[in-house]
Every structure is written in C-alpha cells, then in structure tokens.
Simulated scan of single mutants.
Amino acid sequence: MNVKIINTSSHELPKYQTPCAAGMDICAHLQVPVLLKPLQRKLIPTGLFMEIPEGYEAQIRPRSGLALKNGITVLNTPGTIDADYRGEVGVILVNLSDSDFQIEDGDRIAQMVIARHECAEWTVVETLSSSDRGAGGFGSTSK
C-alpha cells in the first residue's frame, strides 16, 4: 500500500523495526524537551502529515517498552487517524508512573498501525437473533 506523507521533522519516516512487525515506530518532533510529570498528559507533535487511502485508518498505539519500563502510554489508545484528516499527527501521552519522564526530540514515542476498516450501515429492527451468551456482560463468561 502506498501512503502519501509529508515529514516536517528531521527524523526518519515511520518504519517497521522487524520484518514481521505490524506497527511502525513514530518519533517526537520537539523544539524543546517535554517533561511529563506523574499522571500528566500532553499532546506530542510528530511533524507527520498523511493522506491515508479511503477504507483505511492509522491507529496510534503505545510502545510496550515505554509502558513497561517507564509507565508511559498513549491515553486514547488506539488513537484513530481517519483517511480524510490532513493535519499533523499528534500523540497524546500520559505518565502513569510515580516519576517524571522527559521526552526528547526524536524519541520513539508510539507505534502506528495502518488497518482496513468497514463503514457500518444500520438496519433498525424490533428483535435480535438469540445466542448462547445472550445479554451476559462483563465477567459473564468467567467461571
């Protein structure tokens, strides 16, 4: 798949770190470092602008290493970038640790997955088909 991209940062384009990776690492594009205090959230710019093909979205997800080692995650995970959005890609990071965390220009802050999606068309009905689960909700399948 070919995705048009503008990169206003001095960093590499998003890239897969291994041949079988689903997510591409994306970097912070900062004029000055950003300090994230415990439980603080901030929008981190990337310098990336994309034209995603219709029928696809870009999902912004946490990097597992940042989450495990530092408690840094993407707040609205997965963040969705729609095919008709043309603004700069930003990543909402939150610090869930008890320590300050500094983000530097060029740090790999999240990963991006390009995924196909469908648009739903609603059919209003009076009843739904039955299933073994029925209306069982949270915890209903646990024993």
Rank of each mutant, 00 (worst) to 15 (best):
N2W: 02
V3I: 15
I5F: 14
I6P: 03
I6S: 08
I6N: 11
N7I: 02
T8L: 12
S10G: 15
H11T: 02
E12M: 05
E12N: 13
L13P: 15
L13S: 08
L13N: 14
L13H: 10
K15V: 07
Y16D: 09
Y16A: 14
Q17E: 10
Q17W: 03
C20I: 14
C20N: 14
A22S: 14
G23E: 01
M24R: 09
D25M: 12
I26S: 08
I26N: 11
C27L: 10
A28T: 15
L30K: 02
Q31H: 07
V32C: 03
P33N: 12
V34G: 04
L35Q: 04
L35N: 13
L36H: 01
L36N: 03
K37W: 10
P38C: 07
L39N: 11
Q40R: 03
Q40D: 05
R41L: 11
R41D: 06
K42R: 12
K42D: 05
L43H: 03
L43I: 14
I44Y: 04
I44M: 09
I44H: 07
I44A: 00
P45G: 12
T46C: 01
T46H: 07
G47C: 08
F49R: 03
F49S: 11
M50S: 06
M50G: 00
E51A: 11
E51C: 12
P53S: 13
E54W: 02
E54M: 08
G55K: 00
G55N: 03
G55P: 04
G55C: 12
Y56G: 05
E57R: 11
E57F: 00
E57V: 02
A58H: 12
Q59S: 12
I60P: 07
P62Q: 02
S64A: 09
G65H: 04
L66F: 04
A67F: 09
L68D: 08
L68N: 01
N70A: 05
N70G: 08
N70H: 13
I72T: 04
L75T: 04
L75A: 02
G79R: 01
T80D: 15
D82G: 00
D82N: 00
A83Y: 10
A83F: 12
A83Q: 07
G87K: 06
G87F: 14
E88P: 04
E88R: 06
E88A: 07
E88Y: 04
V89M: 15
I92Y: 00
L93G: 00
L96A: 02
D100F: 00
F101T: 00
I103L: 05
E104Y: 06
G106F: 01
D107F: 00
D107S: 14
R108A: 06
R108C: 12
Q111H: 13
Q111Y: 07
M112N: 05
V113T: 07
I114G: 11
I114M: 15
A115H: 11
A115K: 13
R116D: 11
H117W: 10
E118S: 14
E118D: 15
A120L: 15
W122G: 01
W122Y: 08
T123H: 14
T123Q: 15
V124S: 11
E126F: 05
E126Q: 15
